[in-house]
Design a protein around this nucleic acid. Structure first.
Lengths: 209, 209
DNA sequence: CGTACTTTTGAATCGCATCAAATCTGGTGG
DNA sequence: CCACCAGATTTGATGCGATTCAAAAGTACG
């Protein structure tokens, strides 16, 4: 094994310079744990290696709004230079979380241009993913949103469901009842199947006008 | 005047290093002009100094989906290291557009850590704005979306409307009819007023809960 | 075995999309 | 200046789809 940091996720090892990898700490976080809370000052950055973490905010009526569902990658990276977090991060599926301190991260960026470039590339990817999320939420039928998600985030029509349909409903911005009904209807129409913890889209394009 | 690049927007002058500012070209773009098209290769980056530009994609049924409405700042910055654009940029209000070539921009980042840091800060701000946009689209009533927009992007309850309500409707992900009705109803309820090309929210909190 | 949570189905209601049509607006050319 | 046109604005009627409230059944976990 070439890298001495076997405990760190491969993607992370390719992103961070070695000096930072040495300062990483990986631990297991249990369902329900909060990585950070809105309003608190960012000290560390959190990388999700496995499991699932959601970013959420409380709406004005106290309802929970899911901003992001992360099964992979950084959460709260937009708060890198911020005075405080703008949302909560909650673990919804037992996860491996790698923690990197903010200060050495910023220091590394200041003198490692290649690292900055990789970080910018990551942010760009996140921006594109978020634009797709907006595009998805602009669709007004549940089925359209679900198909859009499968197309853009699935692999070959297969969408992993680590935390169940209810969590997915939150990400799609619909009630869980509506999503259950949508999935049931599509299964009946032979265009979707549930395979364990995944949704599989069957290529019959009866739906695609 | 201290900077020799008076033709460049102040915000841009503070972001880019001097060598890049010299390579910028600012021009006027007319309503209807396309800055770039989805699928084409990014050569330049575009900064909107005034006017209004929308990023949009065609949905599967050919309907136009507005991804972003920019009156200020870069458009398509997520395509910095991409092989091709993932959406179209269309001028909807006559605009001042500053063009920066991609190659020198990337070169500057490679050896100017402070510039990279500023660029990252800009991307982070864009990420947060996009997360708010997702939060907004997750609301299911037109009025909630409009108030959310006024709260997050307005200045003191005042939201500029450079391109009319129809353009705004696209950004909110609703039909223009629905938005017209919503605004009319709120004006009748004394909680919103139209002042020329702006919407002003009147602090009567009859709406909030 | 009980508790908490997800999953599932049902019925009633509400808000938006849709289709349609009329009016208003700014800009162009006669 | 006026006729004219394209696009934005406005109002109306109808239907669909999601929300909402409610309740029951399944499931994981201590």
């Amino acid at each position: 094994m070439s890298t001495p940091f076997a405990n760190v996720h491969k993607e992370l090892a390719e992103l961070l310079p070695e000096a930072l990898l040495a300062a990483c700490e990986t631990r297991r976080a249990k369902k329900g744990e909060r990585l950070f809370l809105a309003g608190t000052k960012p000290i560390c950055m959190f990388y999700v290696g496995s499991g699932e973490v959601v970013l959420e905010r409380l709406g004005r009526q106290g309802e929970v709004v899911v901003l992001q569902r992360a099964r992979h990658g950084f959460v709260g990276e937009a708060s890198l230079q911020s005075a405080r977090y703008h949302c909560d991060a909650r673990v919804v599926v037992n996860a491996e979380i790698t923690t990197v301190e903010m200060a050495p991260l910023l220091a590394a960026m200041a003198h490692d241009a290649a690292f900055s470039a990789r970080w910018i590339r990551m942010l760009n990817a996140e921006l594109r993913r978020l634009r797709l999320q907006c595009e998805r939420l602009a669709l007004n039928r549940v089925q359209d949103r679900l198909l859009h998600l499968i197309e853009t985030e699935g692999q070959g029509g297969r969408l992993p469901l680590a935390a169940g349909l209810k969590s997915l409903a939150g990400q799609l911005g619909v009630t869980h009842e509506a999503l259950y009904r949508c999935v049931a209807g599509m299964e009946k129409s032979q265009c979707l199947r549930r395979e364990g913890a995944a949704l599989v889209w069957l290529a019959g394009d009866a739906i695609v006008v």
